[in-house]
Design a binder for these strands. Structure first.
Lengths: 157, 157
DNA sequence: TTACAAAGTTACAACGATTCCAATCATACT
DNA sequence: AGTATGATTGGAATCGTTGTAACTTTGTAA
């Protein structure tokens, strides 16, 4: 893939969640709010860039120098199990994470810049035909984001 | 995951595609029809079990003993690029493959038996909101297949 | 305050899917 | 035949993730 997403997460949404809210979320999910776990959840709540475990780890390392990769993985697995986060496997080889406490939405992977966007597009479990018992439905789209599409068509003009 | 899919692919659809048809598909996609590539595409056309690269490799090995894993990967990448096959990343850590020459459909991963089912549920690229240029949309569902759901509810009866 | 159990964290080894690479082989065109 | 091009091969290397055993922290009760 020549796409690059190295610039990191641009989408720092202004709504920074307070530590109190973070702790409340974890208590509700029956998860002990340790420092490390709070750091992970806080990162996920503050930014909307669907980071991978590795990205979470390296982004947290400066402020939590003794942090271990294993702890990040343990934490994310625990939170996924307790439905605090969703796992997103839109790219081969990496699992990305998204706060579950958001309105349901689809995801769009841009093949230009490699970024992943939230889009308002969902499918209801009720739409699944047949006698399936459906826990969840994910919608993954691929193509060009508005920016890259504009840049691409500008080039060929 | 305690789910098992070891039994392999049950869904041998009767419609075995002729070698001639296989070759035609490849010619159309501008792919040289080598023995190895034909074997891969033939397997994909004959069975509807969404095999992984490893599964394709080990299933082909008896009849093509000198086959290399790398060739399987090369072939699948090439065919994906030429839109002869689709990559399905419904499970973490493995890419599965599906013949592209089928009516579009969604996929359902059963957490009971681990099998992947085709379901009649798709989303049109036109439904993606905003200025995105959408190449493809995948719908991935998780839950229990009819068999496992029945077995589960029978247990608790 | 000490003691102890339970839970959480850590570093590192191990694993599996995939990719990389250099060598070999097959094919088609002079 | 000779050569260029593309396909195939096997093995090493990479990368995300998981497993493991030791260590640290926390909570609780003497």
């Amino acid at each position: 893939m020549e796409a690059n997403n190295k610039e990191g997460c641009r989408d720092k949404s202004g709504n920074s969640t307070t530590s109190a809210a973070i702790v409340a979320m974890m208590r509700e999910a029956q998860i002990q709010p340790s420092m490390q776990r709070m750091a992970v959840l806080e990162l996920l709540a503050a930014e909307r860039c669907h980071p991978s475990a590795e990205e979470i780890y390296s982004r947290l390392l400066p402020s939590v120098p003794t942090l271990s990769r294993t702890t990040v993985y343990n934490t994310l697995h625990l939170m996924a199990e307790k439905n605090l986060v969703h796992e997103i496997e839109i790219e081969p080889g990496v699992t990305r994470y998204d706060l579950a406490a958001r309105p349901p939405h689809g995801h769009f992977l841009c093949r230009g810049c490699g970024r992943i966007f939230d889009i308002e597009l969902t499918v209801s479990p009720d739409d699944v035909p047949g006698e399936f018992v459906t826990d969840s439905v994910d919608v993954f789209c691929r193509g060009l984001c508005p920016e890259c599409a504009a840049a691409g068509s500008a080039e060929t003009d």
